[in-house]
């Protein structure tokens, strides 16, 4: 059932027709959002869209209170107060942002895993490499058996099935997926280095591509590790709240 009067708050849509608040009012809102961001370290790269949405909300709230306020800055201060204490809002946002961090990590591993794997298969298996080189994929295979399901579980548990899967399971699977991906790359890179030092020639020039792919993914994993640790704390909060 759709009620026309519910489509917009009473008094109409406060945001329509006005581009921006005046600088003092905007400063009040920016200051509040800065306080919020300061309480959510580590989530900055994915916070932009959330921040834009919260800013829009605060602008609407400010404009709605304008008829009862002497100026926009006063209205903004009331809107900010009604939005909630920054510490409380940050605490309630943290699990959701943490889930996004883990999901993004899972999606990246899901996308890069087959690519990195294909590079190594092309370099070591399909290029008629000498026998010692064939051992490398065999050594990495057990990690794939653990890592692949963990990546899928990470993506699934932070997506549509999130309601039925514990947040701590999502964090754990994200950690397993990350560790096994890093271990797989380390095994392949370390093995390649040992074989190159030994009197065994490189299998093909494709090895350089595979090495670059693994190094690139390791760099990404290194960057993601810190965020993952922060996300685990956030998801632990969500688990405790359930």
């Amino acid at each position: 059932m759709v009620h026309d009067h519910l489509t917009r708050p009473r008094g109409g849509d406060p945001g329509a027709g006005l581009a921006e608040l005046d600088p003092p009012a905007a400063a009040v809102i920016d200051g509040y959002l800065d306080q919020l961001a300061a309480r959510l370290p580590g989530y900055a790269p994915i916070d932009a869209k959330v921040t834009a949405e919260l800013r829009d909300d605060l602008q609407d709230a400010t404009l709605a209170r304008l008829p009862r306020s002497p100026d926009q800055a006063t209205a903004a201060r009331v809107a900010v107060a009604e939005f909630g204490d920054p510490a409380m809002v940050a605490e309630s946002l943290r699990p959701e942002l943490a889930s996004r961090v883990v999901r993004r990590l899972g999606l990246t591993l899901l996308a890069t895993g087959p690519l990195v794997g294909a590079c190594w298969v092309l370099a070591l298996v399909l290029s008629d490499a000498a026998p010692p080189w064939h051992l490398l994929p065999v050594l990495a295979a057990p990690l794939l058996l653990i890592g692949a399901p963990a990546v899928v579980l990470t993506v699934v548990s932070t997506g549509r099935l999130a309601r039925w899967i514990s947040p701590s399971a999502a964090a754990a699977s994200g950690t397993v997926a990350t560790v096994t991906a890093a271990a797989g790359d380390a095994v392949l890179l370390g093995g390649s280095a040992l074989l190159l030092l030994a009197p065994v020639g490189p299998p093909s020039s494709l090895l350089a591509v595979a090495v670059a792919a693994s190094l690139g993914r390791l760099a990404f994993i290194g960057l993601a590790a810190g965020r993952l640790l922060g996300a685990q704390r956030g998801l632990a909060t969500l688990t405790a709240a359930r």
């Binding site: 949405e53 909300d57 409380m88 309630s92 959701e96 889930s99 932070t158 549509r160 309601r163």
Partner: peptide, 17 residues
Amino acid sequence: LPTGTIYPALYRLERGG
């Protein structure tokens, strides 16, 4: 409710499809 508490719930509903 403080508006800030509504957004996490909206994001959760969105993530759940």
